[in-house]
Write a protein that binds this DNA or RNA. Sequence first.
DNA 1: CATTTCACCTGGTGGC
DNA 2: TGCCACCAGGTGAAAT
Length: 285
Amino acid sequence: MPELPEVETVARSVDRRVRGQRIVEVWFGSHREPFKTPPAQQARALEGRELLSIHRTGKHIVCELSAALDEGTRKSMRREAAGAAQWIVHLGMTGRLLVSHPDNPVAAHTHARLRLGDGRELRFVDPRRFGRLELRLLDRDEPFTAAGAEPLTIGAAEFAALFRGRKLAIKAALLNQSLLTGVGNIYADESLFHAGIRPTRAAGRLTRAELERLRVALRSVLQNSIQAGGSSVSDYVDADGVKGFYQLDHCVYLRGGQPCRSCQSAIRRILLAGRGTHYCPQCQK
DNA sequence: CATTTCACCTGGTGGC
DNA sequence: TGCCACCAGGTGAAAT
């Protein structure tokens, strides 16, 4: 499900619903995949902390946690583990972060349940297990930062510099999270369509004007999608279980063979960087 | 270093 | 109905 607009939508809705809640009890499933930090260690560090705020960085959801407030907990912890912390959730391909009432049935592939002070639960559900859960203790670990630049705020010169001298296809470059953070397959294809650029073009050979069209198109596609609550291609929902509707505005993504919304030519589907890639052969040069 | 390919997972869909 | 091939929002390790 999750590229920048979906992750932003989830982070906002989780923040709205659980900010200020204390984490009372933590349960983790037994699969090893979702845990960047060992689950026992995460559980120990999460319990007793307060959720101060939840926000998005790139495709990551960052939950800011208070210091371990409770005196008993604090004494049982090593001194360097008692300060503020971050719980970082990456949704992978199929991850969901949901706020549920405890008596709601637990969905298949639920890997984490955090019981909150008011009895509700924050649940992490992820069938394909490409998602990741990580804990950072800020006395000891660096706070989370994304490698790449934020596409919503990057300026023209910095954007152009990202691609200078690069021989790979512009679409592959857009997907590279160490250049730009948060762009995935949907918004790479959609932004290239709105900028009128073929996904196969070498990144370093785009003109200054094309790069600027791309930057502006990408920003507005992402902003419009956030406004729409993201794209629900199969089953993506936010923390309240609400679907997005930006998929209704998709011009090329998953529209292979269908007529272009602008010129009626058949949208083409190719494989690029191992991903399904969709473009209009007429509108994109 | 830059770039490409592939493995990691489950589930839904469409053809036969 | 069943079986199978193929496809799906991502990324990080290994190969080139």
